[in-house]
Amino acid sequence: MSINKEEIKKIAHLARINVSQTEVDQVEKKLVGILALIEKMQKVNTNSIEPMSHALDINQPLREDKVTAKDIRDKSLDLAPHSEQSLFIVPQVIE
């Protein structure tokens, strides 16, 4: 399996990463290299192996249903690139 320019454009769009026409060759070269490195895995038989998502075999802890968070609105609005009327402002969202 390897990646082509078309797929690079598709994933770049999904990831909201701009890959310009001039960069695409460079990016392709490097990604193809990395994928070749990954490809070693495919030769290994893993049929009966259970996938491992976490380093340790422990279970999800649960939080008591309590309101503990402080109101940090003023601080958070200050940190925003653009806020007005207590809202984070972005270019018009088109539904």
Binding site: M1, M41, M52
Partner: peptide, 17 residues
Amino acid sequence: YFDAYYLKAQKIRRLIS
């Protein structure tokens, strides 16, 4: 690609462990 890459890698992770 999920099975061929991500799932596979998680299985390999088990082998390494």
